[in-house]
Structures are given as structure tokens and as C-alpha cells.
């Protein structure tokens, strides 16, 4: 069994002395692990967020397998090493994929969304909002997508401002106002790509996506939300970008 694909590196950990177990997220094959020889050549390549061109081989499909060849295609991680907030965003996105995406299952749209996010990260103005869209995309890819197309009460598709924390369906401002204390805020930029980002929108989007990621994904797995996500929110707050 073998395949060759472009993939985003999710991380690598030592396996014995001379080897690493690397984990990548490829467009056509999803999240895959494999053994790689540790060394000066491979360790810089296997930084989370880098895009690699890799081959995966194993005698039997259920085996761990190994990566060969493994070549750096885009050194995204290196480009972000000096940007504390972008690095936190990259670590969080990678931690979410590692924690939530099933192994060896292709998530093509999610891969594309992660690639767009990583490529946008040098632009500090736009990526935090893109990141929250990525999280909603992750929920959708896992089958827990929110219904933000129309109001669950009136059926209207304009003026959506709330999301039910139970059903994940949107509501217009007027329909949801009486229950504002229990509803989650829906920032306009999540339903209208032309909407201008307002102060507090990114924080609201983090709260919205975080609520459903925690309850629908990580609680089910018996795990807490990744620490990297908490650090990202802390870092964005520190940088005044929430």
C-alpha cells in the first residue's frame, strides 16, 4: 500500500533514537502517521504548518508505515516563527485537526481551508477572522455544521444575529432578542463575506465555534479543548485583536 501527495505537517515526535513518528494531513488521504528517519535533513521539514511532498508506504494498510520521500514544498512554519500570534494560530489549527479529524479519512474542503488560513497568516489583519471560519468549517467537515442560512423561527435569511447553543441554528435579531441571555452571538462576517469586521466580532466567533467544538467534538471524545486554542485566544487578547 502506498500513496504520494502534498500534505501539511501536523507534528513529529521521537520514536526510539534515530526515528520520528511524523503526522501529516494530506488532501486526498487525510491524517496519516508514519516513521521518518530523524536527522538534520528531516527535523526542520517536520515543523507543524510546513507543506511537504511526501510518499507513504507500508506492507499492509493497517501498519504505521513510513514516509519516503519527504520533501519540503512550502516552509510556512519558518516564515511564522517570529510572529507570536500567527504561531499560536498555527499551533491551534494543527491541534484541532489532530484532535478532531479521524485518521486516514480525506477532508478535502478542510484541507483547502487550512491551506488558505496558513497562507493568510502573514497578514495579521485578516487571519484571525479566517481562523474562526476555519473552525466552523471543521465542525461542518465533522458533520456538526451550524445552520447559518436562515432563521430557525421566521425562516428569514437577513439580519441573522444569534445562534442557538443547543441546535446550532441561527435566528434573526428580533426573534432571538427575548432569549439573548442564552443565545450565542453570530457576528455578521460569518454569514456575509462582504460584512465589515466590527470590534468584538472575532471574540464572538471564537465563543460560537468554541462552544460547539467543545460540546460536539471534544466532550464526546472525553478530551478537553486543545491547550493551544486557549493560548491562541489569550495571545489574540494580548495583541488586542479579539
Amino acid at each position: 500500500m502506498e500513496w504520494t501527495d502534498h500534505a501539511i505537517v501536523l507534528g513529529a515526535r521521537h520514536f526510539g533514537e534515530g526515528k520520528l513518528v511524523a503526522e501529516v494531513f494530506s488532501r486526498e488521504h487525510g491524517r496519516y502517521g508514519g516513521v521518518v528517519h530523524a536527522g538534520r535533513k528531516n527535523q526542520p521539514i517536520l515543523q507543524a504548518g510546513n507543506v511537504v511532498h511526501c510518499g507513504w508506504k507500508a506492507r499492509l494498510s493497517e501498519q504505521l508505515g513510513f514516509f519516503h520521500p519527504l520533501e519540503l514544498a512550502e516552509p510556512h512554519a519558518t516564515k511564522l516563527l517570529d510572529d507570536a500570534t500567527a504561531l499560536a494560530g498555527l499551533s491551534s489549527a494543527v491541534a484541532l485537526i489532530r484532535g478532531a479529524a479521524a485518521e486516514r479519512q480525506a477532508y478535502r474542503q478542510l484541507y483547502d481551508a487550512l491551506m488558505v488560513l496558513i497562507e493568510a497568516m502573514p497578514d495579521s489583519e485578516i487571519w484571525p477572522a479566517l481562523y474562526t471560519r476555519f473552525e466552523l468549517g471543521l465542525l461542518a467537515a465533522l458533520g456538526y455544521g451550524l445552520d447559518l442560512t436562515r432563521c430557525a423561527v421566521t425562516g428569514e435569511n437577513q439580519g441573522l444575529a444569534w445562534v442557538s447553543p443547543r441546535t446550532g441554528r441561527a435566528a434573526t435579531y428580533d426573534a432571538g432578542a427575548p432569549h439573548a441571555d442564552v443565545l450565542l452571538k453570530l457576528p455578521a462576517f460569518l454569514v456575509d463575506t462582504q460584512a465589515e469586521l466590527q470590534p468584538g466580532d472575532v471574540a464572538d466567533a471564537f465563543a460560537l465555534a468554541g462552544h460547539f467544538l467543545e460540546r460536539r467534538v471534544f466532550d464526546h471524545k472525553g478530551e478537553g479543548m486543545p491547550e493551544a486554542r486557549r493560548r491562541l485566544i489569550e495571545r489574540l487578547g494580548f495583541a488586542g485583536r479579539l
Binding site: 527535523q43 515543523q47 519558518t78 516563527l81 517570529d82 507570536a84 504561531l87 499560536a88 493560548r231 495571545r235
Partner: peptide, 28 residues
């Protein structure tokens, strides 16, 4: 000069910032 190493460096820089001392890192 890895994602984890530099994430730690940024975290420490953030925690050390209020002390008003010079914070530097090795060049890459």
C-alpha cells in the same frame, strides 16, 4: 528554532515584558 521552541520563546517574552528588561533571542 522550531514551532514549539519559538512558541515557548514568545510566551516567555510576553511574561517577561512587564519587567522592563531587554529580552533577546538567538538569531536564525
Amino acid at each position: 528554532a522550531t514551532v514549539d521552541g519559538q512558541t515557548t520563546a514568545h510566551y516567555l517574552a510576553e511574561r517577561l515584558q512587564p519587567l522592563n528588561i531587554t529580552i533577546s533571542r538567538l538569531s536564525h
